[in-house]
């Protein structure tokens, strides 16, 4: 099931990149993001799926706002031949390296063995999360209790990025 939706995602991504019209490219990107939300539901991650749907809607609104009254046609000139060849070679080299790394990973769906040193805190959170924090949703317990400084940093990044966007888009007097 997950693999089927992943095929759909890859097709939507190719359409989003190769489409001639910017607006249809953005709509295809929305298909990619909502398909990711469906996959998250299949992966037993309901909290992440809710966040993904919310963020995807806001993101499509931002992207459509950015392109709606500007040129919607594709650019006529092609990239130089060398750039295209270099791009394909870079993607191929990346994929070879990734395939070499993925062989050594454990089988899909075997969570405690996936990464021995990384999985230790996860199992600790699962075993002691309710007793230590009193929160039955362990994801929220990790986000707001065990790793609250991480969330503070996230909010700092969010604040400074929005501040930067406001400064860049300010009206000139």
């Amino acid at each position: 099931m997950i693999e089927l939706i992943l095929f759909f995602k890859i097709i939507a991504a190719i359409i989003a990149i190769e489409s001639k019209n910017l607006l249809s490219a953005i709509v295809s990107l929305g298909a990619v993001g909502f398909a990711l939300a469906i996959i998250m539901v299949f992966l037993n991650a309901p909290d992440v799926a809710i966040v993904q749907v919310l963020v995807e809607v806001v993101l499509l609104v931002i992207l459509v706002r950015a392109t709606l009254h500007r040129d919607l046609t594709d650019l006529k000139g092609k990239r130089e031949f060398f750039v295209k060849v270099f791009g394909i070679v870079a993607v191929g080299a990346f994929f070879l390296g990734i395939a070499w790394g993925l062989i050594s990973l454990p089988v899909f769906g075997s969570f405690p063995e996936t990464a021995v040193s990384v999985a230790v805190p996860s199992e600790w959170y699962l075993a002691h999360g309710l007793r230590q924090t009193g929160i039955s949703n362990i994801v929220t317990a990790v986000l707001l209790d065990y790793r609250a400084y991480d969330t503070l940093g996230e909010v700092t990044v969010l604040f400074s990025a929005i501040l930067g966007a406001v400064v860049i888009l300010r009206k000139k007097r």
């Binding site: 991650a45 909290d47 992440v48 966040v51 993904q52 963020v55 806001v58 993101l59 931002i62 992207l63 969570f111 996936t114 990384v118 999985a119 805190p121 996860s122 959170y125 699962l126 999360g129 362990i138 994801v139 317990a141 990790v142 986000l143 790793r147 991480d150 969330t151 996230e154 990044v157 969010l158 990025a161 929005i162 930067g164 966007a165 860049i168």
Partner: peptide
């Protein structure tokens, strides 16, 4: 794994702010 999900939530929200910028 709850840790991966918590980290992905953080990553998604940061991604949105980066896109706005």
């Amino acid at each position: 794994d709850p840790l991966a999900q918590a980290i992905v939530i953080t990553s998604i929200v940061i991604g949105l702010s980066i896109v706005a910028l």
